[in-house]
Design a protein around this nucleic acid. Structure first.
Lengths: 114, 114
DNA sequence: CGACCATATAACTGCATGGTCATACAAGCA
DNA sequence: TGCTTGTATGACCATGCAGTTATATGGTCG
């Protein structure tokens, strides 16, 4: 079956909406902090509340969104609910952006220290 | 000079804000359409208005945001202003997300056609 | 100069959504 | 059976921001 290369160049507006929605999930600092806290393995909600300093309700809501999107997975164990990264791609994305931002800022900073 | 690997695992909350801001720029379908329209080279505002079907004011605003962020660059030529991709990384990001979304949806769709 | 074209911008509106508070639900334990 | 802990959820508020309208700016041509 012929497999066209999937390039952003030819995507329907509807497809772009899905892509945008995905980016939107990553466009919130608190959610990035949650993902960061889950980088080394699964954590339960209480641990994530402590790690981020946010309220429990807020953490739960963000976790729910990330879970619905398939970025996280849930595992219930007795009274606790453990979340974990289901899609490591998010780290690839973050790393790409990070690296680029850092390079950009260093280039700009260099203008002050020639 | 020792160069630590830049991993999302150890980023200050402030850094995460910058990363989130970057994602936020890509989290809008109209902006993705503009980037898409610029994929094959620079275009002026009028061309982008035609390509996207949006109003001129709206297009201008989005272009301004993308430009401020360093994702686009501007070139003024007489009466026209040409925009172009300044940071092709955006396409890497989109491709990553696209590919993943597609795989995800096809996997889900397969549940209906065994 | 004045009439027009291309682009930017300011003011405004409506909607989406992040955060909070209170509460519901569920599981373990006395 | 209550009591406590862990998690989810609904209601609410405030903010951000995409989109629109109208207008300003600036360049071209007559």
């Amino acid at each position: 079956m012929p497999r066209k290369k999937l390039s952003p160049a030819d995507l329907s507006p509807q497809a772009l909406e899905l892509v945008a929605a995905r980016f939107k999930l990553l466009a919130e600092p608190m959610r990035l902090r949650l993902l960061q806290a889950l980088h080394d393995g699964e954590r339960n909600v209480t641990q994530l509340v402590e790690a981020t300093g946010a309220t429990q309700a807020n953490v739960s809501k963000h976790l729910g969104l990330l879970c619905d999107a398939g970025i996280l997975r849930r595992r219930k164990d007795g009274m606790h609910v453990f979340y974990a990264i289901a899609d490591p791609m998010v780290f690839e994305l973050c790393t790409l952006v990070c690296t680029r931002l850092q390079a950009d800022l260093q280039r700009k900073a260099a203008h002050f220290a020639p």
